[in-house]
Nucleic acid binder design. Sequence first.
RNA 1: GGGGUGUUAGCUCAGCUGGUUUAGAGCGUCUGCCUGUCACGCAGAAGGUCGAGGGUUCGAGCCCCUUACAUCCCGCCA
Length: 587
Amino acid sequence: MLSLKSKYRTHTCGELTEKNVGETVTLSGWVHRKRDHGSLLFVDLRDNYGITQCVFDGGDENLEKIHPESVIKITGTVVARDKEAINDKLPTGHIEIKSGKWEVLTNADVLPFQVFGDDDVPEDLRYQYRFLDLRREKLHKNILMRNKIIKWLRDQMWEMGFSEFQTPLLTADSPEGARCFLVPSRLHHGKFYALPQAPQMFKQLLQVSGFDRYFQIAPCFRDEDLRADRLLEFYQLDLEMSFVDLPDVQAVGEELLPKLIKTFVPDAIVSDEVPHISFDDAMLKYGCDKPDMRNPILISDVTEIFRGSDFGIFANAIENGAVVRAVPAPKSSDKPRSWFDKLGDYAVKELGLGGLGYIVFAEEAKGPVAKKLDEARIAKLHEIAGDNSSLFFICDEEEKAAKAAGKLRNKLGEDLGLINPKEFKFCWVDNFPFFERNEEDGSIQMTHNPFSYPIATLEELDTKDPLTIKAAQFDMVMNGIEICSGGLRNYNPEVMLKCFNIAGYDVENVKKNFAGLYTSFQYGAPPHGGCAFGIDRLVCEIVGEPAVREVVAFPANQRGQDLLMGSPNEVSEQQLRDVHIQVRKRG
RNA sequence: GGGGUGUUAGCUCAGCUGGUUUAGAGCGUCUGCCUGUCACGCAGAAGGUCGAGGGUUCGAGCCCCUUACAUCCCGCCA
């Protein structure tokens, strides 16, 4: 390994121990903290590798005045600390540097916020001084962890026989999905490059090119509104394989993910099995397409129990096509009235429901809904809920009811403490519908990206109701977070044209929008499939950060600005002229 | 584009139902003291257009309206 020694240091700030006692050493780093006792001065010196305490016996007037975060070089002798003075919190806590000489390398001004400690600091200040923020312990650790995870993932992919590729960042706008970032072309008047939303077509072309197994730690760009878990530019572990069926692609995820968590979260309880859940089942039982499998609550459809009952609101709605979904809350029968009222508020405010009906199954069935139902119906509901539980009812049009029930399931799981944060559970969600009906104009459109393969023969595509056709497409979900999406690709030009045809596109359109890929399919394309893992989100889960910006060194803020570099910014008139652009007036 | 929450010292926050003349505390900064601290301690000082603008009121940090900014969510987006 390359030595870390230089004219600035003989050791790092994290490596000296009792073994080094008596040695004369030189350290360089940031003044983390000073403790001034008059004629005795302690300086904690920090670098990437750790913190070492330096003592100036007799004090030092000049050093006392220096600001924290100034960079200094200290030469001194390693001495063992007295027993009482040992600091077990530091790896170097058994020794200290009895200092002779020191020298300022660079001075720091008064800081806009403290590097030491874990004070809350406003986001905009943190971004404006990201280099200071990155010195702080938590963020510094997160970034180093990300570093290790990416190296580990890359090693795993190599071991599994994948080859690593780079694909263009200046490419063409692809017609589906998110908005692209555009880059004007200087050489081609009025034309634009687009930054890739993902290297989708390139990785497929690499399959057609015969490379068999592709992977890339790929930057992806999407010009959409941001969230805590979304960035303008983010990274995916992108992979693609030839001559595979769905289970072959999924095997990569099953091999990779549980092992990843076990490697980087030592106290995690990781379940190796990755159950398959169909999209329809996920929407019914979990109320979303990314169920958190740690949550034991299962949603039931109880439409038939309420049909024709005396509970008029539901019975009438059912006649008009609504469904009723029941969400059980285990061991909640002793909750006070206020708990139920709060959930009712939540349902109205957050879920947009008219209200939240419920039955409490204590000694007897209680609650306003129970009064309206006969014994037989109550017995059936009791069976679903279990003893000492309550059952919440959501009645609405199917998709809305399912989604609201899913959100309630998540909230109950959290509120009732049913989720163990140390646990990591996975599942596959598959059998997504290939087509869906456009709510606005009633037309048939593709649900997923246009590259996925239908689970249907050409003949079935011709004869079956398109809405019943499923896609060879899957998501991998970890603890309720979608961490991977993939599937088999549509490599057969005939099938591809048929699918586009059903969605209302003609041959010319396909040839135009997918020119390169479509052409390549005319010359022998292997059956292929692949997927992509969201690296930023994975790192978040591993280090326990809810926000993806906490695991990226230089993220844009929620408005897509980089306050440190000042992007996006205006450019000169000449630069605009070079790329043949005129900025329109606002409004 | 829409909704929730927030904005008081460099930073974190308190400030009751609108009414102690001078808006408080901790951290940081500055000055002084301190030989065993490691969140060092002690004494003192500086530091405020209460985001901005308008309104209600005898009186507004607090109530109302407008607006800016931040953040989280919906739409959008894998």
